[in-house]
């Protein structure tokens, strides 16, 4: 009697757990990932309007942007990551929507020229600084023979003027 009651109670606990699990999974399946406007804007700010230049999707007022934002919201609601959504838009609408130039063709220059220009500027700056450093001491050093000669001449000139004035 005791044994059958124990079996019955453990069976009812298992049944309850199974029901709870089924309920939870059903609830998960029914409710998609909640997506806020901030979520949409976070991704939209990384994408550009296809018809208006240099306007990001989050602030773009056109009809097409509104549709794209809705499409974006739908993807996020399905659980897509930000990068998956961006990759989808690039595949659908081209690299220009991401604002990141593709690493092919002439666009490669955009990746190569700035670092090369920076290196050239640094090298140029270094050369100029080195040149100034080399020139300055020679021009101002009182210890240089030319400067010493000049000081001697100046003193002689001042003495001569003083003598003339005393007369």
């Amino acid at each position: 009697m005791m044994k059958s009651r124990r079996v019955l109670s453990s069976f009812s606990v298992m049944l309850m757990l199974a029901l709870l699990a089924a309920n939870a999974s059903q609830a998960l399946a029914q409710s998609p990932v909640s997506v806020t406007d901030d979520d949409v804007n976070r991704v939209a700010s990384q994408l550009y309007c296809p018809v208006c230049e240099n306007v990001t999707l989050d602030v773009c007022p056109t009809d097409i942007c509104a549709r794209w934002r809705e499409s974006l919201r739908g993807k996020l609601a399905l659980g897509w990551t930000d990068q998956q959504v961006i990759d989808y838009f690039v595949a659908q609408y081209g690299a220009s929507v991401s604002g990141i130039p593709p690493k092919e063709g002439l666009s490669m220059l955009l990746y190569g020229v700035p670092p090369a220009a920076a290196v050239l500027l640094l090298a140029g700056g270094f050369l100029i600084v080195r040149k100034y450093k080399a020139v300055k001491p020679a021009a101002t050093s009182p210890a240089s023979p030319a400067a010493a000669r000049s000081d001697g001449y100046r003193k002689k000139l001042e003495d001569d003027i003083e003598k003339e004035l005393e007369r």
Partner: peptide, 16 residues
Amino acid sequence: PTLTKKVEPNRLPGWV
């Protein structure tokens, strides 16, 4: 000695 000093203009190297 002359009082004025001829200052050489600082020029970048030609190749730059």
